[in-house]
Simulated scan of single mutants.
Amino acid sequence: MPIRIPDTLPAFETLLNEGVRVMTETVAIRQDIRPLQIGLLNLMPNKIKTEVQMARLVGASPLQVELSLVRIGGHKAKNTSEDHLLSFYQTWDEIRHRKFDGFIITGAPIELLDYEEVSYWDEMRQIFDWTATNVHSTLNVCWGAMAAIYHFHGVPKHTLKEKAFGVYTHRNLKPASVYLNGFSDDFAIPVSRWTEVRRTDIEKQPSLEILMESTEMGPCLVREQACNRLYMFNHVEYDSTSLADEYFRDVNAGTPIKMPHNYFPHNDVELPPQNRWRSHAHLFFGNWINEIYQTTPYDLEEIGTDRD
């Protein structure tokens, strides 16, 4: 089954051209099945690019998925038009009465701020608590993962001496995990962050289980059985050119930045990078969607009722 998104969303044509099956809302309502309800809290400045990245992976599922775009209510986006936000997004206050089978919380370029210094931190704390009762499974990504694991467990983030930037080999630590079904023993994942969470801090929390890890970059994916939470600290969703875009942006701005590790062929920035993580990105999201489908209640209103 295809992903169900608004017919006029910019991502619609992009996904269609890539061969992703996309369903119009008109066609979707004729199918007598309940689509999985997936929410995307998009904290990234370039919201359209992130929409495409996430919708591409969610939409590869054989199940019908309805994607709802969500934004922080008290924060004004600088890089996305107000028309786009008003047309396709709802604030969290507007959807907080709803329940979701799955909910994705993205990263945000605010890693070097203390959490309490983030202008919308109070709202984020409310959203994290809300996911415990209104979401069957939450996937927290990069800053969203660091913020969530700090909120729920007090796991700190540590500032790095230089940006972790490039494509790094990761190990499959739990091959029997439903989220790593079909994964290789090792695989490449893009990394782009100024902070890290450390294994020693995570291991102090018995409810947390590390599923993926890099020798150089540390923990990548952590599972928490309670509330079916996942914490993904790196960017499996990135496009082939995402790291290049970040690199050339900083170079053109005169910001000190090292060439991304193991990314450009022969370390030649004139050569187009090869995507070595796409298949595992699809595999991971497919496993997540499948696990939601297998375990979520048919009646959405039952979500979270066993967590009171």
Rank of each mutant, 00 (worst) to 15 (best):
136 H>E: 05
27 V>F: 09
115 Y>S: 12
271 L>I: 15
174 K>F: 00
70 V>R: 09
136 H>D: 06
302 E>M: 14
88 F>T: 13
5 I>A: 11
291 E>K: 08
245 D>L: 10
50 T>W: 02
139 L>E: 04
241 T>E: 13
186 D>V: 07
191 V>D: 04
245 D>H: 05
224 E>A: 10
110 I>H: 03
12 F>V: 10
54 M>L: 14
114 D>P: 01
244 A>P: 00
215 T>L: 08
173 L>Y: 03
150 Y>F: 12
234 N>E: 13
47 K>L: 09
144 G>L: 07
210 I>Q: 05
281 A>K: 03
213 E>G: 07
180 L>P: 02
223 R>P: 01
160 L>H: 02
98 R>G: 05
10 P>R: 08
182 G>Y: 05
110 I>Y: 00
10 P>S: 15
173 L>R: 07
82 E>C: 08
69 L>W: 03
18 E>N: 09
298 Y>T: 15
23 M>V: 14
284 F>Y: 04
195 T>A: 08
305 T>A: 04
28 A>N: 05
254 G>V: 09
230 L>Q: 05
5 I>T: 11
131 T>V: 05
67 L>H: 07
205 Q>V: 15
3 I>Y: 02
81 S>E: 08
85 L>Y: 01
250 D>M: 08
48 I>N: 04
202 I>E: 07
189 I>Y: 01
248 F>P: 03
19 G>D: 06
129 D>E: 15
294 Q>W: 01
271 L>D: 08
242 S>H: 01
17 N>G: 11
73 G>Y: 00
146 M>G: 10
258 K>V: 09
74 G>N: 15
225 Q>N: 12
13 E>Y: 01
164 A>P: 00
256 P>A: 10
204 K>G: 12
281 A>G: 13
104 I>E: 02
169 T>F: 00
50 T>S: 08
36 L>N: 06
127 I>M: 08
142 C>R: 07
72 I>T: 12
102 G>K: 06
198 R>I: 08
32 D>S: 13
83 D>M: 08
25 E>R: 09
255 T>H: 07
90 Q>P: 00
232 M>C: 14
52 V>Y: 00
153 H>W: 04
237 E>R: 10
6 P>E: 11
109 P>L: 14
154 G>K: 11
215 T>Y: 01
2 P>M: 08
119 S>Y: 03
186 D>E: 15
222 V>G: 08
153 H>S: 06
220 C>G: 13
22 V>T: 13
171 R>K: 14
85 L>K: 10
214 S>N: 03
193 R>K: 11
148 A>T: 13
82 E>P: 03
12 F>Y: 14
142 C>L: 09
281 A>T: 10
87 S>F: 00
56 R>Y: 01
181 N>M: 03
29 I>S: 12
